[in-house]
């Protein structure tokens, strides 16, 4: 049974058709890498999955539950975005790690991780219980889980530091931990290493590799071809808002069928070759 089913996602901004019908599905524990040149719609697709944008058409289903149905939204003329509570619940199926981290700069690392779970737990409590929440067992459990997740990304000793005191790679690992704490069904990465210095990308990619070993379902938008072919179970090459080529890394990287894919991959290779010299 597929954990994620995406059918016919279309999205346009004004006259620009960014996504022209995207279909794919993902099994539990699989890693999907989405590659493609800038402007091909990779990020928009990820944002549609997280409901930061709303697709014009198409359906998104997680665990056979339809979370979003563009056609029904249109007919009902009641966009999902207007129903805040429902939207928040649906968003929690997905986690998103941003290109530029978006950590909360005024919160320490551990508080970055704990903020959302604590608020979520508190919102189910009565007014009086909220005051005493920090002494409750539920709070201790959240803290313990946050600490465990933090050591999973190897940053347990940085728990009381502020994001500004960390390197880019460490910040991105905190961001990954922050997304993990919410127990998403599917963890999405939007070019997680693009804002990092080359020497810092390794530690972030290592964390993602380790997540794969623990059966985390992931979608990674990336420019790191080597990483994609190494870690991904499926690769999608996107161009101009459509899936140009999809398959296993072996199929896409070694034996691409489409001319566009071939051109893209060879341009990547020369770019990488140029860097080495």
């Amino acid at each position: 049974m597929a954990i994620l089913e995406v059918r016919g996602i279309k999205k346009s901004f004004g006259d620009t058709n960014v996504l022209k019908g995207i279909d794919f599905s993902l099994e539990k524990g699989e890693v999907l890498a989405i590659i493609g040149s800038s402007g091909s719609g990779k990020t928009t697709l990820l944002r549609c999955l997280n409901f930061l944008e709303f697709a014009d058409e198409g359906t998104i289903a997680v665990n056979d539950e339809v979370l979003y149905d563009g056609a029904a939204e249109k007919v009902a003329k009641k966009k999902l975005k207007h129903n805040d509570g429902m939207l928040r619940k649906k968003r929690l199926h997905f986690g998103l790690v941003f290109q530029n981290f978006n950590l909360f700069p005024h919160k320490s690392v551990i508080d970055n991780l704990m903020l959302a779970p604590v608020l979520q737990a508190k919102s189910e409590l009565s007014f009086i219980e909220r005051w005493r929440f920090e002494k409750s067992r539920a709070y201790a459990a959240i803290r313990e889980k946050a600490l465990a997740t933090l050591s999973r990304v190897g940053l347990a000793e940085k728990k009381n530091n502020y994001p500004c005191e960390l390197s880019g790679g460490q910040q991105q690992r905190v961001a990954i931990a922050r997304a993990l704490v919410m127990n998403p069904d599917i963890l999405c990465f939007d070019e997680p290493t693009s804002a990092l210095d080359p020497e810092l990308t390794g530690e972030v990619l290592k964390v993602i590799r380790e997540l794969k070993d623990t059966d985390t379902t992931m979608i990674v938008v990336t420019h790191e071809m080597e990483f994609a072919s190494d870690v991904a179970d499926k690769v999608i090459y996107m161009a101009d808002g459509v899936i140009e080529e999809a398959g296993t890394p072996e199929e896409v990287f070694r034996h691409p069928k489409s001319e566009k894919t071939k051109a893209f991959l060879s341009s990547r290779k020369t770019a990488a070759g140029g860097k080495d010299e």
């Binding site: 409901f51 928040r88 909360f104 959302a116």
Partner: peptide
């Protein structure tokens, strides 16, 4: 920055929170 709002949104926080 808008990213702060988006980070909160994907973490399931309400607008008030």
């Amino acid at each position: 920055p808008n990213g702060q709002y988006e980070a909160c949104a994907v973490l399931g926080m309400t607008k008030g929170q």
